[in-house]
Amino acid sequence: MDWLTYLPSLAQGALVTAWITLASIAIGAALAFAAGIARVEGGRAVSTLALCYTEVFRGTSLLVQLFWLYYALPLVGLSFDPVTTGIVGLSLHVGAYGSEIVRGALNAVPVAQREAARALNFGRVHTLMRICLPQAIVEMMPAFGNLAIETLKLSSLVSLISIADLTFRAQSIRNITLDSATVYTLTLVGYFLMSLVLMLAMRLIERMVRRGAAFPRAAHA
C-alpha cells in the first residue's frame, strides 16, 4: 500500500494550503469590502483609486503577480518569507474580484431604499451600514462562495514560489516515486475534500447572514 506512505507528507502540504487559503479569504474579503464600498460611496479620488486596484489585479496573471512579489520586490529592498508573499498575492487577487461582487450587490439594493433612508434623515454611514449592506450581503454570499473555492484552487500556484503546499508536496513525491496516477489522484481528492468543507462553511455563513437579515428573498420585489 504505497499510497498510505504518501499521506503524511500530503497532509502537511494540505495544512499549508488550508492556512494560505483561509488567510487569503479573510484578508481578501476585507479588501473586497473596502474597495467595493469605495467604488460605490467614495468621492472621485477614492473611487478611482479603488477602480485602479481592482482593474490592475484582475487584469494581470496571478502567477506573474506572485513571481513579481517573490522575485522582483526584494530587488527594491522589500522581501517577505514565501508564505507571507503567497498570502499577500492571493489576498490582493481575491480582494480585486471580491470588490466587484460587493459593488454589484450594493448597486442592486433598490434606489427606493436609499430614498426612504434619506427621507428619514439617516446619514450616509448609517444608510450604508444599517440599510444597504445588510440587504446587499445576502446577495453577495453565493458569489463569495464561488470565490472562496476559486481561492483554494488558485492557491496551488504558490507551489511555484517554493511554498510546500499540497501541490508542491505532490510534485516532490511524484519526482521521487514517478507514481503519477496515485499521487495526483490523492491530490485531487485532497483539494476536493477541502473545497467541500469550504463550501459547507460558506453555506453556514450564508444561512447566518440570511437569518440576521431575516427576510425572504421575495421581500425585494
Partner: peptide, 8 residues
Amino acid sequence: QSFNLFPH
C-alpha cells in the same frame, strides 16, 4: 407609493 419599508 411602494412603501419602501426596510425588508430586513
